[in-house]
């Protein structure tokens, strides 16, 4: 079962750029992000593997451009689905999950926990325009994903071959173990809580969520993010999605404190019930 989905995911990776190009091309050629055209190769580290960070002596971070997890023409954010090949109608949502997704869209996603400064895991962690870095610490057998927004926080991926522990305490980012398949970072994550949304689309998840994420860098300025979403609590079958991110060259992460300018403190804390803010 797991093997099958890894294969599916690998296929997605292989076809990733092509899919994206075909998705983007017909829409509007001039909208096609310039970073996809970058003919500089991805930098490599001392071991010869592609680095997901800057070239030696350089700086930079990854940032979402227009990617969403699914295409949803009914979303008020529909214009932001340029890179996503999966239509929401093709997502195998369970009935309750589809009803909840529609409900959230009817309210313009106003109840999103992220806007109440809650961290959000999975794809949502890296979907902020303010960016993130993938910090590879080989001598610690860890990769850190450190984000400017998304609560200005960090996530650790264990690269030492350990298994997921039993009795995981559900958390925002879950428990992540990873390995390299060639130049692709493959991350397996379980142990999510249900306190945040894992996408900008309002798609629900449960504590049964199991993600297989693949990070690859086909050229200097492009990061392809593929993900297999396996959550028997909310979906009838595993499904694949992904998006691309661009490299903000020469930039450094910066301080971003969601609480600072949030003008609705009473909605910010607590469970963010919809009644507490105007949609």
């Amino acid at each position: 079962m797991i093997k099958k989905h890894l294969n599916r995911s690998r296929l997605t990776t292989a076809l990733g750029l092509m899919l994206l190009l075909t998705t983007i091309e017909p829409l509007q050629a001039q909208q096609r992000p310039g970073f996809l055209e970058d003919d500089r190769p991805a930098p490599r580290n001392e071991e010869g593997r592609v680095s997901l960070g800057p070239a030696p002596g350089g700086a930079g971070y990854w940032a979402r451009r227009t990617g969403n997890l699914v295409v949803n023409p009914d979303s008020y954010e529909a214009r932001a689905t340029l890179n996503s090949p999966i239509h929401i109608d093709d997502v195998p949502l369970k009935d309750w999950a589809r009803t909840l997704t529609n409900f959230r869209h009817d309210l313009y996603l106003a109840s999103e926990p992220y806007t109440r400064c809650k961290p959000a895991g999975g794809p949502r962690q890296i979907m902020s325009p303010y960016g993130f870095e993938i910090v590879d610490m080989p001598d610690l057998d860890r990769v850190y994903i450190i984000t400017t927004s998304n609560a200005m926080t960090w996530r650790v991926i264990f690269m030492d071959g350990r298994e997921h522990p039993e009795n995981l305490r559900p958390s925002y980012f879950g428990h992540s173990i990873g390995h390299w398949e060639g130049d692709t970072l493959v991350v397996d994550t379980v142990g999510f809580n249900e306190k945040s949304w894992f996408s900008r689309d309002g798609l629900p998840t449960t504590t049964a969520l199991h993600l297989t994420e693949r990070y690859s860098r086909p050229n200097f300025s492009t990061l392809i993010y593929d993900v297999t979403i396996d959550d028997p609590g909310a979906y009838d079958a595993p499904w694949d999605s992904g998006f691309v991110l661009g490299w903000n060259e020469g930039e450094e992460l910066f301080e971003y404190v969601c609480q600072e300018n949030n003008v609705s403190p009473d909605a910010m804390i607590g469970d963010g019930r919809i009644s507490s803010i105007a949609p």
Binding site: C117, P119, V135, Y144, I146, A151, M152, T153, W154, E252, L253, V257, Q259
Partner: peptide, 13 residues
Amino acid sequence: FVLMSGGNGNWRL
């Protein structure tokens, strides 16, 4: 990076 667990799980560079 100084990673914090208390507060908001922030980092400081």
